[in-house]
């Protein structure tokens, strides 16, 4: 049985426990991104071009292969690394070269970046090199956008249309 002199103490202790749980369950508030900023998020996975050229198999070569492996072309698995750069208002803010994933280097290269920019008008340019040439870019796109506060502006690669996309 609870002793009468402990009833008040228990009320205080349970109240303090409840206040502590309730307070830190949602307070103090945390500012993740400023209200007036927008967010430019670059998220892209892309497989670079194959390192070696594909070779057409002759009918004799095809005949020697098991029926389930008779692909017309013989291609190497390894892919080129991919370089991606992003400029915002003429200033390069992101430049990264990513190796293809996988033990054989035959997977996709992965890029991710997320950065705050002030809301308002911006010129955003992205360029990507996925082939073997040492300079120049295989894809280069630029867009001028009016970013609203808290807007998330995404830069991706459209694999169907083979171009960098902005949305």
């Amino acid at each position: 049985m609870i002793k009468p002199q402990h009833l008040a103490g228990q009320f205080i202790a349970y109240s303090a426990f409840a206040v502590m749980i309730a307070y830190f369950a949602s307070s103090p508030p945390y500012q993740h991104h400023p209200q007036e900023s927008a967010l430019v998020r670059l998220s892209l996975t892309h497989a670079g071009q194959r390192v070696g050229d594909c070779k057409e198999r002759s009918p004799d070569e095809l005949a020697k292969l098991p029926p389930n492996m008779r692909a017309k072309q013989n291609c190497g698995r390894e892919r080129n690394q991919v370089t991606l750069e992003m400029d915002i208002d003429g200033k390069t803010v992101y430049s990264q070269t990513a190796k293809p994933a996988g033990l054989s280097g035959d997977g996709r290269s992965r890029f991710y970046d997320s950065r705050e920019v002030p809301a308002g008008r911006h010129v955003i340019r992205a360029r990507m090199r996925d082939g073997g040439k040492p300079d120049g870019f295989d894809y280069d796109e630029q867009v001028e956008v009016e970013l609203a506060p808290r807007q998330v502006f995404v830069i991706d690669f459209d694999e169907e249309d083979k171009k960098l996309s902005f949305e």
Partner: peptide, 9 residues
């Protein structure tokens, strides 16, 4: 939309 002011647990 980016998250701004949050009340984390």
């Amino acid at each position: 939309k980016a998250t701004a002011v949050l009340n984390p647990d």
